[in-house]
Design a protein around this nucleic acid. Structure first.
Lengths: 224, 224
DNA sequence: CGCACCCTTGATATCTTTCAAGTCAGGTGG
DNA sequence: CCACCTGACTTGAAAGATATCAAGGGTGCG
């Protein structure tokens, strides 16, 4: 880091914070004084629908950058909830515009992150819009596993997965019951199992085949 | 525009170009030497699936910024096709990083656009994932009308809509047949009709109610 | 012990897809 | 001008996938 960068970051960073599981710390429709980078723990981005439904937009992992929408568009367009204990690095929204002026390379990195998020949502939309239940669920589990892998949370063939079946169902656009039955099918096929807060992939090749994903690992993410 | 901005833009802009309906000018999996801003005409962003399916990610309107992914991630993650005759402003990818250094405000605008796109895809995902057929189609038509409105393409209660029913079906994740029947239902309800390349909204209130959208107009978009 | 919350499973209802035809308009060649 | 073709739109009927309803089982916790 250059001196300019260090100087800016000192002003930009407001501190660190921690949230307990179940805490909603960014709220759809509200602004936020802060931006966050996830240091540890996992959560969910989601939207509530007027009719009571919920769509999970993405699973939040360490390294994720949260609150950009509130910063550039004035208010959050989705909410974020902690699913496990989360530790976050806190930044001042008020300094955000200056980031582009003082350390342009970091501004570019923010754009990179936003483009990556856009890419992910496009893939999610294609999966939810076009795939049947098995592929949707397999895709979501494979994605989750890959992301866990990218941040070193995998040990052996399993990783922590502190979510509920309801969360997965709301992510892939299936009912809870059907999601449960689809998970049971994957389990009985010997492809993957999800027990006691951990996801285990027994046959990664078959999993990615079901998910229709290429076998490339997740791209590294710039730190913000 | 400041002098710095003008000087940069002169280097950044490579010219203008035009594509005939049916031309695929950005291709999933390929890089692109250029970035584009749409001057006129309409198109589609879409992804092809290995099994032959297609997901339309968004409808392309004047003012849209295309090719960001190829620039920041090395290759396009979706394709773009012209649905009507399109005129585009062409920029050199090679100068893109310098944009952040030389005119940071424009760098911020790029981030704004990316965040907006992310917001749209989130809303699309929520609609496709949670809503039934009528709401999905009503949502898409209402969105299209709003976007046309924002760029002055609406006259009276109708706007041009140079797409096929298949395009809409692939956008909302329904079969062509079911999309057709849903359109017929909206027509017989007197809410909207889509004929001869034009969309007419007879009852905008009922339309937005069906679509579950708020009544706010689309936000203005920075020019790039 | 009883309550909550989550996961699981079977049966039934609903929605959506698929299949199969048929219409209609524009374009082309005789 | 007409026969023919193609692509897009339309419609009905049957098949298939998913949602909803209902109920039981497990676990942690007050």
């Amino acid at each position: 880091m250059s001196d300019a960068e260090l100087g800016f970051m000192r002003r930009f960073k407001a501190g660190e914070t921690s949230f307990a599981p179940g805490t909603i710390f960014l709220n759809e429709g509200e602004g936020s004084e802060f931006l966050y980078t996830v240091l540890s723990g996992q959560g969910l981005r989601y939207k509530l629908l007027p009719d009571g439904g919920r769509q999970v937009l993405n699973f939040v992992f360490p390294g994720d950058f949260l609150g950009l929408q509130a910063t550039v568009m004035g208010e959050m367009k989705h909410s974020v909830i902690a699913s496990s204990q989360m530790r976050l690095c806190v930044f001042r929204r008020s300094e955000f515009l200056r980031l582009f002026h003082e350390i342009p390379q970091r501004g570019y990195d923010v754009t990179w992150v936003a483009a990556m998020e856009e890419h992910f949502l496009g893939e999610a939309l294609a999966t939810v819009g076009q795939a049947g239940a098995t592929r949707r669920v397999a895709w979501a589990l494979a994605k989750l596993f890959r992301r866990a892998e990218a941040v070193g949370m995998v040990s052996g063939d399993s990783c922590p997965l502190p979510y509920r079946q309801r969360d997965l169902a709301d992510a892939v656009g299936l009912s809870l019951v059907h999601t449960n039955k689809t998970l049971a099918r994957l389990r009985s096929l010997g492809v993957a199992r999800w027990d006691g807060g951990r996801l285990t992939i027994h046959d990664f090749d078959r999993m990615t085949a079901l998910a229709d994903l290429d076998t490339a690992a997740a791209a590294p993410r710039p730190l913000i």
